[in-house]
Design a protein around this nucleic acid. Structure first.
Lengths: 171, 171
DNA sequence: TCACATAGGTTATAACACTACATATTTGAA
DNA sequence: TTCAAATATGTAGTGTTATAACCTATGTGA
């Protein structure tokens, strides 16, 4: 194994960005936007948090907290689960990531709308594929129901299960 | 499927003690309906499954699997967690109960519509209060989104987080 | 520069869920 | 009626996910 960048003793808010692995351009772009987003809100996207977010963006599927422990561990200092959970808590708080409760897994948010919007996530029950859709209709209907019931709207994520177009019965 | 009468939801309230050992009339009614429902479908509502369902109906809040282990254990022979999980699997399969993934907890279904409908569950993020609402609008919108995305609709439960009328900011 | 808030490290454990296999009970067809 | 198959439960152990408690390091601002 070649020399790998280490996350050991990273320092906080280091001026120089961490070197990263095979991040796609799209991922880089998302990270740049996230950084600007956090800076604007006075939130600190530290190296660990940034790295977790990067992995979530790079992954083609939802990642479990312990997947992240493995991934990060294989690239340097192995972190305790609690460290990952704390990073995830931050990212979710900022609306940069979502927790998929039905799968005990986490995904990067596909848009930087902040934490207070309704997001629908379609989960294929066959292949596990996940796609985030912005549906004003669903958001609106949900808001209406919340209001009718006297509920105060909050950031929320709708996990909707079905079979994706590739896994349908009729294919 | 025959249209079965809907059970009135009690309206879960915060700070209520754990369920009693004596079933309310409402619970008895729900169990009688569930029995008929299962009989009609050739499903076996065994004593264990019936007891779990009874506890879920009696409870004023979602119960965790291990809550059920405790409750059942305190009333007789202590069962292994797997026994509870198997009973829950059955109840969910039949649409008699729902799993709230976001809370790792289970509730009795408030209506006997079977497992293949869209149900919305409102969860108060402050007091943990849960109420199940039948919203044709939400169900319809969700179905539409699924169709637009090429997803094949499936049984699903929407967990919607907010603040209930008692826990709103403006109170 | 120093007090305070925030981020992360370390160790341990809590909480939730299931595997594998044995035994018991029910069902339905011969 | 009988018996093989399917279903339901018992038992022991393990896997997986998430957090508690306490400490150290770093960033922030008066």
């Amino acid at each position: 194994m070649a020399h790998l960048p280490s996350l050991q003793h990273p320092g906080f808010n280091a001026g120089v960005p961490m070197p990263t692995f095979h991040s796609s351009e799209r991922t880089e772009q998302a990270l740049a936007l996230s950084e600007a987003f956090c800076r604007a809100r006075g939130a600190r996207l530290t190296p660990i948090r940034r790295r977790v977010l990067e992995l979530l963006h790079s992954a083609q599927k939802p990642l479990g907290a312990y997947d992240l422990v493995e991934l990060l561990g294989s690239q340097g200092h192995r972190m305790a689960p609690i460290t990952i959970y704390r990073a995830l808590d931050f990212l979710i708080e900022q609306g940069l990531a979502h927790r998929l409760a039905s799968r005990n897994a986490y995904i990067a948010s596909s848009s930087l709308t902040g934490a207070r919007t309704t997001t629908a996530v379609l989960i294929c029950e066959v292949c596990g594929d996940v796609s985030e859709v912005a549906s004003p209709d669903v958001a609106e209907t949900v808001t209406k129901v919340l209001r009718e019931q006297g509920y105060q709207p909050r950031s929320r994520i709708l996990e909707i299960t079905g079979r994706c177009s590739h896994c349908r019965d009729d294919h």
